[in-house]
Computed example of a mutant assay.
Amino acid sequence: MAAERATALVIRGTDWSETSRITTLWTREFGKVRALAKGGRRLQSSFEVAFDLLTVCEVMFLRKAHGGLDLLTEATVRERFPQLRTDLRVLYCGYYFAELLADGTFDYDPHPQLFDATLETLRKLGNPTIDRPAAVSAFELVWLRELGYSPRLEECAVCGTPVEAGVRVPFSPSAGGALCPKCAPSTADRRWLSADGRATLGRLATDGDTLPAGVRTELRQLLSQMVSSILGRRPKMLAYLDGVG
């Protein structure tokens, strides 16, 4: 077993025994890592409070050669996002991000940009003036892009035919983008995407500071449907995101 060191965000935890715990980590260097922390539930554990959900840690673990759980040997807290402990709306957003990372990524499939975007968004959410729906939507778009599912807005997601610019278009969350007139009738989950919503969606991943009121509901519903389609179910935490603005 080779020892590895990484910067990690705690995204899930499960008690394993009276003294040990299984923790799921989203690491910058290795992607998702699931590891057993022997003695991690003891009051005098050397892991401090590193198992708290949405805590950033520096970790050391022994990587198993033939599958199974890795063995966590060291975890030191680096960042804790204090706003998560004082604002329930921010906490719900953080739990939603953790759910997408835990259930929508593969073990040992690193995405450094997604790791950085997660921490940056958690930090921004502590600002009381931030547009939270915009921040959540921008994070979803980074998650979609890193998994290879960026919404296709300029060409048909089914056949690749260019789609007319600057107009309302049919859009399929399951197909992952806009639809041409030929493909739209045969796509069961098609919905309309307004011209303003389409333009906003195109810039949101790189300019996620604001989500105009006129397209907010439209884009939140659309992105929620895309995320649900990829996961194969509706994320549990989506039900708690209403009113996060």
Rank of each mutant, 00 (worst) to 15 (best):
L9I: 11
R12W: 02
G13R: 13
G13W: 00
T14N: 06
T14R: 14
D15H: 12
T27M: 03
E29L: 09
V33C: 02
V33N: 00
R34N: 05
A35Q: 08
A35N: 07
K38N: 07
R41T: 03
R42Q: 11
V49W: 09
F51L: 13
D52W: 04
D52V: 11
L53D: 08
L54H: 06
T55N: 07
E58Q: 14
L62W: 11
R63Y: 03
H66C: 00
G67V: 02
G67T: 05
L71C: 03
E74N: 07
V77C: 02
E79W: 04
Q83P: 00
L88Y: 06
L88G: 04
C93Q: 04
C93R: 05
Y96G: 11
A98T: 08
E99V: 06
L100H: 12
D103W: 14
G104A: 11
D107W: 00
Y108Q: 12
P110R: 04
H111C: 10
E120W: 02
T121V: 08
L125W: 03
L125Y: 07
P128W: 04
D131P: 01
P133F: 12
A135N: 03
S137V: 02
R152A: 13
L153E: 01
A157Q: 12
G160C: 11
G160M: 06
G160D: 08
E164W: 00
V167D: 01
R168E: 14
S174Y: 07
A175D: 10
A178R: 09
L179F: 04
A184Q: 05
S186T: 15
R191N: 00
W192R: 07
A195N: 02
R198E: 06
T210N: 06
R216Y: 09
T217D: 15
E218M: 11
E218T: 12
R220H: 13
Q221L: 15
L223G: 11
I230N: 10
L231T: 09
L231A: 10
G232T: 02
L238H: 13
Y240S: 15
G243E: 10
